[in-house]
């Protein structure tokens, strides 16, 4: 690879850079409005457009977008009811907001030249932290110390418990990490892969005779893009389902 080609190679990390569009700070903490904030706002507006604007007619026979809003509602409601029970329905607004926001943010992120909000570990970790603190707070509020039964499986002999309880505790503590890293890493890796393959196309186009091979990574991008669409929906779903599962633990701590 000669230096000119290296210079022309696009940088797959560049897409994750934060640009401060409106820099300001509150009490010494930087709270600049960045491109990430812009796309957070767009994702939220997308959810609002779908759930509020499209349902403003309250039609008995729904239009296309209202039908979509209703499908999303019933899908999340069914998911919460199935995994966390009827009592879990009090967290339905939270799970719904979480799922719809992550889903729309992931899908917007797949449009070229946009920003993937969920490719930032701080964002996914913030979500996971909210979920886990909600689980812990509600569990303690609802069951007091009974919540700690979560770490003591039923019907297990005492010698096994000695080993099992630390494992349960470790698995509980690793939940926020796994929850946040799963979403973050999936989105990040997908976008990097797309950018790298895009870079291959550019490099091949600039490599004389080898330009004939340029369509190969391009086709790979098409296939990867389909995969990324799946990942975008699936990861939002996984995040929401796991949230429901953890909330179920808070509601029914006994195994």
């Amino acid at each position: 690879m000669n230096p000119e080609e290296a210079a022309a190679k696009p940088n797959p990390i560049e897409q994750f850079e934060l640009h401060r569009l409106w820099p300001f700070e509150i009490n010494g903490i930087e709270t600049s409005f960045t491109n990430a904030s812009l796309f957070m706002l767009l994702a939220a507006l997308g959810v609002v457009a779908l759930m509020i604007l499209a349902t403003s007619k309250k039609a008995i026979v729904p239009g296309r977008v209202q039908a979509m809003a209703e499908m999303l509602y019933e899908f999340v409601a069914g998911m919460v009811r199935q995994t966390a029970g009827t009592e879990g329905m009090k967290f339905f607004p939270f799970v719904f907001t979480l799922f719809s926001f992550i889903l729309i943010a992931n899908l917007i992120g797949l449009v070229p030249y946009t920003y993937s909000v969920t490719s930032q570990i701080v964002v996914t970790f913030a979500f996971a932290a909210v979920v886990i603190s909600l689980v812990v707070c509600y569990g303690l509020y609802r069951h007091g110390f009974g919540f700690l039964n979560l770490f003591v499986p039923h019907g297990v002999p005492l010698p096994v418990l000695v080993v099992l309880v630390p494992i349960e505790i470790i698995s509980f503590l690793s939940r926020p990490v796994s929850l946040s890293v799963r979403l973050f890493a999936n989105i990040l890796a997908g976008h990097i892969t797309l950018a790298v393959f895009g870079g291959f196309v550019m490099m091949l186009l600039g490599a004389g005779v080898w330009a004939a091979l340029a369509p190969v990574p391009l086709l790979a991008i098409v296939a990867l893009y389909a995969l990324e669409l799946l990942v975008a929906c699936l990861q939002a779903f996984v995040f929401a389902v796991l949230t429901c599962v953890y909330l179920n633990d808070a509601i029914h701590p006994g195994h």
Binding site: L18, I26, T31, A36, M40
Partner: peptide, 12 residues
């Protein structure tokens, strides 16, 4: 980059 993102995430 953490503080501005968390701030706007919480708000939005």
């Amino acid at each position: 980059n953490f503080a501005p993102q968390i701030f706007w995430l919480v708000v939005i």
